[in-house]
Design a protein around this nucleic acid. Structure first.
Lengths: 223, 223
DNA sequence: GGCGGAAACTGACTGCACTCAGTTTTAGCG
DNA sequence: CGCTAAAACTGAGTGCAGTCAGTTTCCGCC
């Protein structure tokens, strides 16, 4: 009866196992049959629990989806930051990261649609997790900005954190519009639009002396 | 709407009347009982049509909500542009307009939540209507920008339309986050955040010569 | 007027997310 | 070890959005 907590109380362990089993079952079924066509009863059965038990672990079917997505997105983002192109511009770096996320969403548009629609309207626990994700991405983006500010390449008088925040907002808005359209637009098109939005936002970071001049930007010159 | 041809073929007229009756019934019931607590059967009954008929006019309950909201928002925006403060800064004008929208959303947060969640994921007809709304607001914002560019107050080398687009994106993202939090944040707080986001985006419009100098912007100077 | 066909309409029905009263499992304690 | 209470679990049940086979209404045409 020692205080060894190595193997947690049986209860806790069971709960963890069930949670994991539910997530795994849901992931498989969503991928195979699609989100809408998968019933919560199926998921519960595959996970070896009662139909009602699922709802002790996740507040809703959407909640479950968000929990799954969150984990996957973490991996996608981590990889994207690990493979940042060398000696690239800030804009290129941003598009590398957000492009990776878009590519991920593109892999399963139905899931992505459901996720993006629900992500801000889930249970408090998952909502916190979503914000954690957003803040995590923004913070790493802010680092990339701050790094250049420190080098004097970018105007240090502008808050890197705020710019990063705005960029995420621009990304989310564009992504939603794209998913809402239901693939009527190629993802390349989305990326191009996002590039424009980012470029416009990032302009505030250009160091004062050189800004006004029409740099090397021969595109995007409509009224 | 409108274009009420005096005697349309009876069929067309009946259809219009039913559509209007459904919208009216839904508006009343949503306002009284709330969105979730109102059933489509109730709406149909109040409108004097069969339960299934509702779905001949609106693809889903959400679709119906979006149709209602769209009309109301039009009025809100029109009024906001009609009451723009005189001789105010662009930022002030923007906050006047978007503030009016936020105030409207605040009046019935449950409806607003449902609307914002669904607006980009509705039937093609309503989706087009939503985009029309977004583009309409952005276009009028762009006008306000262009006007100042013409006067030489703002850098004319930046696309007013793009800036306006970005502003709407920033608004949507902030609004969603706010509604997702479920009123845990005061709307004043939301407005303050939006002001920051807008201010940062609008910086790109500042005329070149004066920009770098810490002009008349004593707030927002954190790392 | 009356006929044929199409468009509009209906409400009983279906399927599914989510609930909850009742049951089983676990943990703490003498 | 029982014993108790609470936590976890269950699956039959509930309510509702959305469907569809069958019915009614409308319209053009002879």
């Amino acid at each position: 009866m020692s205080a060894v907590v190595l193997d947690l109380p049986k209860r806790e362990r069971n709960k963890q196992e069930k949670r994991v089993a539910l997530l795994a079952a849901a992931r498989r079924l969503f991928a195979r049959r699609g989100f809408a066509a998968t019933t919560t009863a199926e998921i519960a059965e595959r996970a070896g629990v009662g139909a009602g038990t699922l709802f002790l672990y996740f507040a809703s079917k959407d909640d479950l989806l968000v929990a799954i997505f969150r984990a996957d997105m973490d991996a996608v983002v981590a990889r994207a930051f690990a493979t940042l192109p060398k000696r690239a511009s800030l804009l290129t770096e941003l598009l590398h990261v957000y492009g990776a996320m878009i590519a991920f969403h593109e892999r399963d548009p139905e899931l992505a649609r459901a996720f993006v629609k629900e992500m801000l309207f889930v249970s408090p626990a998952n909502l916190a997790s979503v914000f954690e994700f957003i803040d995590g991405v923004s913070a790493r983006v802010a680092e990339r900005i701050a790094l250049r500010q420190a080098r004097g390449e970018l105007d240090a008088g502008v808050s890197a954190a705020r710019v990063a925040e705005n960029c995420f907002a621009l990304y989310i808005a564009r992504l939603q519009k794209w998913l809402g359209l239901g693939e009527r637009l190629a993802s390349e098109e989305l990326l191009a639009r996002l590039r424009e939005s980012f470029a416009l936002q990032l302009r505030v970071l250009e160091p004062a002396p050189t800004r006004a001049k029409p740099r090397a930007s021969p595109r995007a010159r409509r009224a």
